[in-house]
Computed example of a mutant assay.
Amino acid sequence: MTRITRRLASIDAFRAITMMLMIFVNDLILDIGVPDWLEHAREGEDRLGLADTVFPAFLFIVGLSIPLAIKAGHERGASRATTFWHILRRSFALLVMGFFLVNYEEFTKGPALVSAFGFLLIITIAFFFVWLVYPADWPLWRKWLFRGIGIAALIFMALIYKGGTPDHPMGLRTHWWGILGLIGWCYLTCALLYFIIGDRMPLLSFFFLYFLAFSILAHTGEYSFLQYLSLGGSGGLSAFTMGGVVTTVFYQRMTGNGKASKGLLILAAWVPVLIAAGFLLRPYGGIAKLGVTPSWILICTGISVGCVAILGTIVDIKGKQDWYRLIRPAGTITLTCYLLPDIHFAILKLLGPAVELPEAIRTGWIGVAKSLLFAFLIVLLTGVFEKKKIRLSV
């Protein structure tokens, strides 16, 4: 039986769209008077904004990619030990980046030697030095020289960092793991589970429900005795990633049997089921990203499965790929794309108010158009980086 182990173009398309939306909604935070339905729901609100669907989609895409990446590695001759090490290395990189970026958010004007924006700029550039894919013809000493510069910069930033208040300063600590850190935990957990379980659908589905249960228990008062069994610290968020793993394994199985179109129809049929289940569980915390509620998890999983069914039909079955050509780099060197806005933001803040956009351009629908244009330009810049072979290995 033949199975697809190559990179699926539909997943790249889904990832590219999601990454562009992530940059868009992150930039919207800086705007004024934009429609509520585009933004994150506020704490205590029982609703779903567009921004609340983006991070779940990205976690789901991480899961979609796991079986393909591991199988592709095996086809290239990677041993199980090599695969295991790759999972640990990639997870560690995401956790380190998330850890530093979260502490930037807590940076104060204490006795540190650099400003918060200087800290953000230095650590982000250091990430590139440490995890850049260096040219194959570079000697090993030169690669490690540049990596060493990046590592030294991160160590120096850790030593001079001050958070908290001037009266009660504190060093680096895990306030929360940040977007990249949470992705790292979910990837670590679900990649290791797939590494052990393989394509056994019943077990993979069990773990999707297992992670969903953490969210349900958290809103029934029965969470405390199970909180240490979350297999990685991400709790219910891992349900998104495991849902992606299950989806790819099912899609591969149907494609291997020559039933790709039927497989996508079955996935589409699951969309209303997942969304309906989400609304049935709405009494347990409502639809709330900030609460990682079961309703939010199931509704967003349903949306992501629907996107797979639509994009799989358009891109994989019908072979139509040119429509997302300009934004494709966001789906292939995604982490590079994600970090570029931080460099842009830090530089603008360091330059001061003189380069700040007028309030009129940051307000209402004009602000929305500005943020959409900004996201598109970042993706185009990512394409330039891709052509120059500047990409991170994570």
Rank of each mutant, 00 (worst) to 15 (best):
G291E: 09
F128P: 03
L217R: 01
A354S: 12
V54H: 08
E39K: 14
V34C: 11
G73I: 08
F92Q: 05
R282P: 00
L280T: 02
I317G: 02
T124Q: 07
V34L: 04
I155Q: 03
I149A: 13
G233C: 05
L392C: 11
Y187N: 07
K262D: 12
T5S: 11
A288W: 00
K389P: 09
P358T: 12
V305S: 02
V355M: 07
G118T: 09
H175N: 06
L377A: 10
V246Y: 06
I297P: 15
I179F: 00
P56G: 13
L267Y: 00
P272N: 02
S234L: 07
K370W: 10
I287W: 02
L121Q: 13
L280I: 05
V114K: 13
K388Y: 08
P135H: 06
S234H: 00
A239E: 10
L280E: 02
R362K: 14
L290W: 09
T165G: 13
P353N: 07
L311A: 03
A72G: 14
G263H: 07
F206M: 08
G235K: 09
R80D: 15
N257H: 03
L357W: 02
A260K: 04
S304Y: 03
A9P: 00
I32V: 15
L340D: 15
S205L: 15
S224L: 11
A16R: 00
S91R: 03
E43Y: 13
F128H: 11
M170Q: 02
K320R: 06
Y161C: 09
D46S: 14
T382E: 12
R325H: 07
F195I: 08
T336R: 14
L121C: 10
I333N: 15
I149G: 09
I303K: 02
S205G: 14
Y187V: 13
L88I: 15
V25T: 12
F195M: 11
L182M: 07
A112H: 04
S238I: 05
H168R: 08
M22N: 11
F128D: 11
L351R: 08
A268P: 09
Y228P: 00
K262A: 07
A16H: 06
L203K: 12
I327R: 00
G236I: 04
L357F: 03
L193Y: 10
I390D: 10
P67N: 10
I122E: 08
G33R: 13
G258Y: 08
I23P: 05
R3C: 01
I303S: 05
R6F: 01
F84R: 12
I123Y: 10
R15T: 04
L28W: 12
N103A: 04
I297F: 10
S65Y: 06
R253Q: 14
M254H: 11
T124D: 08
I197W: 07
L217G: 06
P329C: 04
C186M: 12
L326N: 03
I390V: 14
V308G: 03
A268C: 02
A268F: 01
I297M: 09
D27L: 11
L113I: 12
R6W: 01
I151Q: 10
W141A: 10
H219T: 08
P358Q: 05
K388P: 02
I303A: 06
G221E: 03
T382P: 06
